[in-house]
């Protein structure tokens, strides 16, 4: 955050928030749903970015935690009639625990090997979901009813979900910002950039790494739970390996190790495939692939990182003082 003037940045932020708060009353239901999905993706990307962008642990399997969150919410709503709003934190806590546990063996896996293990996890998810048919409804999936707004609020379910997702996103962004700007964030970045030096400085690498895994999975699980509500349907094949790759695309394009990048990445993965679909069913993925490679060559810090660098240069601020810019790439 090398913003030249804080008040200006704050004003921009408030205007943006006001516009997003008004959108539900002017947009069609379908457009609204798309924006809800953007918020949900942004939460998931925020989670993945903490792990991969800040902490340098490569996960190609975050679709698995998204699926776990979605199914937690779906099963709770479908089998036990738990209200939607309660399922979201429950999914978050469950995924936090699951992520922490998965993070422990992941401690022993560096770089490529972690990518490999998580990639296999992503490939295996649909099968595992189909296997527990009793809970998950097998390959048919579970059909849910869209949660209504609580009594007294005159909102359609779509508008209600939009606001819930937006609120959760804003809340989790503030949490992430507070988590990452201080001691914890510096520890995570230090582990990423030079694990041995970080340990020598007294950073408990094992604890921070598995915590990062847990929090990251928790974020992604919350996103999954929200998506179960927004789509009102869960099915195993929606959580295939390409979902995990989509998340990777999102953080690379939005910007590794950047909080605002999560929103840019989410906008990209929500809207670009829609436009590309007009060319061919396969086109979105071809475009994703090309973007992944081209970004790695030319803008390794993504849209957010590049914009920040330009902004800093314009304001003649010293960008190098930004803690987010490490030796990542």
């Amino acid at each position: 955050m090398s913003a030249p003037s804080r008040p200006l940045a704050l004003t921009v932020l408030l205007v943006l928030l006001a516009v997003t708060a008004l959108l539900p009353f002017v947009l069609s239901n379908f457009r609204l749903f798309q924006f809800t999905q953007v918020f949900i993706y942004a939460i998931a990307l925020l989670g993945l970015n903490m792990l991969t962008g800040y902490n340098g642990q490569i996960s190609l399997g975050h679709g698995a935690f998204y699926a776990l969150g979605a199914y937690t919410a779906a099963v709770m709503m479908d089998r036990w009639n738990v209200p939607f709003l309660l399922t979201v934190p429950a999914a978050g806590v469950l995924c936090l625990g699951a992520g922490f546990l998965f993070g422990i063996p992941a401690l022993r896996l560096e770089g490529l090997y972690l990518a490999l293990a998580t990639f296999s996890l992503a490939l295996a998810v649909p099968q595992i979901l189909k296997y527990f048919e009793h809970w998950t409804g097998g390959s048919q999936g579970l059909v849910l009813t869209k949660p209504d707004a609580p009594l007294g609020l005159r909102l359609t379910p779509d508008q209600w979900l939009y606001f819930v997702s937006l609120a959760v996103l804003v809340f989790l962004m503030i949490v992430a910002w507070n988590l990452l700007r201080g001691r914890t964030g510096r520890a995570l970045v230090a582990i990423r950039d030079h694990p041995i030096a970080a340990e020598a400085m007294g950073v408990n690498s094992a604890l921070y790494k598995s915590l990062a895994f847990g929090v990251s999975a928790g974020y992604t699980g919350v996103a999954g739970a929200l998506s179960a509500g927004a789509i009102a349907f869960v099915a195993p094949d929606a959580f295939n390996v390409f979902l995990s790759i989509t998340f990777l695309v999102g953080i690379v394009i939005g910007g590794l190790a950047s909080i605002s990048g999560a929103i840019l990445g989410a906008l990209f993965i929500q809207f670009v495939p829609n436009w590309a679909q007009d060319i061919s069913k396969a086109a979105p993925w071809a475009i994703y692939g090309v973007f992944l490679i081209v970004f790695m060559y030319t803008m390794p810090r993504g849209i957010a990182g590049t914009a920040q660098a330009l902004w800093g240069r314009l304001a003649r601020a010293d960008v190098r003082s930004s803690p987010a810019k490490g030796g990542l790439l």
Partner: peptide, 26 residues
């Protein structure tokens, strides 16, 4: 990306995977 960090190489390989897959589908 020959001398780039692991993350960059993995991402480029994933990009390649996605491109080949979709071009074949196309």
């Amino acid at each position: 990306v020959e001398n780039a960090p692991v993350l960059a190489v993995v991402i480029v390989c994933i990009g390649l995977l996605v491109i080949l897959n979709s071009v074949a589908g196309w």
